[in-house]
Simulated scan of single mutants.
Amino acid sequence: MAKRVVPETARRRRRPTKQGQVLTHGLIVETALRMLHEHGAAGLSARRLGLALGADASTIYRYFRGMDDLVLAIADELFGHAVNRFEPTGDWRGDLRELGLRIHHAYLAHPQAALLTASRVTGRPNEVAGDEMILGILRGAGFGDEDAVRIYHAFIDQSLAFSILDAATLALPPAAREADEEVWRDTYARLPATTHPHIAATAPLLVARMNDSAYPTALDMLLSSAEDQLTRSSGAVGQLARPPARRGEAGIRVGTPACRKDI
């Protein structure tokens, strides 16, 4: 059974922990992030967290309903790192690109935490504020609500999916990561053109690119597609809003077969 969460005003301990610190929600999340970085998800437990904080493990449950509640708090903290102090400039494409790169960077700064949290939906303040901002950017650019939601969906899922993919690489042991990176040079770059003509032709480019994240490229492709759609939609709306041209006005030449009346 989940334990009762003590209100914020009643959460402070009357005395510091063994490390001389007063427990707070933020301190617990910060310590949990550090433990994930050092030990991975398997190393995060209430007992170990209590030891790291110099407090009894049961103290954690005065701040969180359980360990999953703590995971959601970590997820919202990472999202907060991405949106903190970000202010839209009015350039919708530039703003979304900057925000996408911020989200990706925030998760990659904590790869073990990213693997644990990037697939979660928290409904917490930082996540909600970020979603409101993204939808506001899209609607402000002129996208209709249906298109705004569709592009938002693709944008946020793309950023989180690449965060998980790239975080998984960073979370590998160094030897395994280096071995994976060397495959492009030691295997792909040596395949003969007689059996693998397309790989052989592009081998230098593959070696140069494939160990870097494809997220910036994928993000640009998504935004280009959205921009093209907005341009087409704006053109179509302009055509519908334009009043019919009269004979002799620009747009239809007088005397063309389309407007000439046979006698």
Rank of each mutant, 00 (worst) to 15 (best):
D56Q: 09
Y188W: 15
R93E: 00
E98Y: 04
M1Y: 10
R48A: 11
D147F: 05
H196Q: 07
A10H: 15
D56R: 10
Q19A: 15
A129E: 06
P244C: 09
D145H: 11
Y107W: 09
G90Q: 02
A113W: 00
F155W: 13
L23M: 06
R139G: 01
A176I: 03
G66C: 08
V207R: 03
R102S: 03
L23I: 13
K18Y: 13
L101A: 12
A114M: 03
L36E: 00
R242H: 15
F79Q: 13
G20L: 07
I134K: 09
A55S: 12
I156W: 04
R102L: 01
G136E: 03
Y152A: 08
R4I: 09
I103M: 06
D95N: 15
Q239F: 05
A189I: 05
A218C: 14
T117P: 01
T59A: 15
P111I: 06
L36I: 03
S233H: 13
V149Y: 02
V237T: 14
E146A: 12
M133H: 00
R97D: 14
A171C: 07
T256G: 04
D95E: 03
S224H: 12
E227L: 05
F64L: 08
L23D: 04
L101V: 03
L51F: 14
D220K: 10
L230C: 11
R246T: 10
E127L: 01
V237I: 12
A109W: 02
A168D: 10
L53C: 11
D220W: 04
G251N: 09
S213V: 12
P197T: 05
A82I: 03
A201I: 01
H81S: 13
T24P: 10
V22G: 08
D228S: 11
L222Q: 08
R232D: 15
P257K: 06
R253K: 10
